[in-house]
Amino acid sequence: MSTAGAPVVAPPARPRSSRRRKREGRKADRRLGYALVAPVVVVLLAITGYPLVYNLWNSFHFVNLSYGNLPRRFVGGANYTSMFGSSAWVAALERTLAFTGISVVFDMIVALGLALMLHRKFKGRGVLRASILIPWAVPTVVSAMLWKTMFDPRAGFVDYFLGAIHHPWASLTWVNANVFRSWVVIFIADAWKNVPFVAIILLAGLQVIPTEVYEAARIDGATAWQSFRRMTLPLLKPAIMVALIFRTLQAFLVFDVIYIMTGGGPGTSTETLAFLNYQTFINNTDFGVGGAMSMMLCVMALVVAAVYVRVLRPSA
């Protein structure tokens, strides 16, 4: 049907008041949005932003509550110089890095195996999936006490079983009698707690990989190993990144399991950065140097997260 000759009817002009109403409506929506998130923002600023900034400020001042009568005073970078020059801090840094490296690699490998196993179909899978979260749900202080008791040469069962294998092992003292054994106990308690958490993250990643990908690979003649290496791992990258960030930061800031199990001993051989930081704050009530230590922990944690995000981000 031709429209030639038909009078051109201009679309009705949108009333000015309608546009204004819409604009005002959008403004009102925005205002509502701000109002709804405001409490969260305020709370986050209060419990995270403010302490962080205040701590940064502390780290450049003399603030030692043991000298409550003395004024706070600006000391520049002296607290940082004192921290970097402290052999205890350097040694704690080395231990922390070693602990983080070993525990993250171990936990990721074991958790990946666990996740792959839980991804398969078998009877009782649901129960097993739920039950592996139990260690993660137990507070670290409680699990550390449990492990400490289990490794106790008198009250625990570990030595009992070891003694059945080799008699001299029946009365091994694990905690604070030997540096290596003290670390072994810490690693075990820490892994027991954290492997399930990593496994669940990886399992969630595995579940979103489409099965068609594996079918196509199988049709193309890929072996199970090739399928895992060329399909599973690349597609699991986002989940691996999340797990790595969480796990690395947890390991880097390890405190409670060490506090409960060894108290940093034997000597200072299991003291980590967070433990030293705690001692500086609580024992010495030195909020200046303690603040500098906290800021360094924050910076290092951010650097670790940034490196992971950069290295493991999905390619465009």
């Binding site: 962080l52 502390n58 603030v63 706070r72 800031l253 924050c298």
Partner: peptide, 22 residues
């Protein structure tokens, strides 16, 4: 212990420093 936790401790602590003892 998180670093932020330590920071919070510091913040709590500082409220103290201004007071006298009497």
């Amino acid at each position: 212990m998180s670093a932020i936790g330590a920071c919070s401790l510091a913040a709590v602590g500082l409220a103290a420093c201004s007071g006298g003892s009497s």
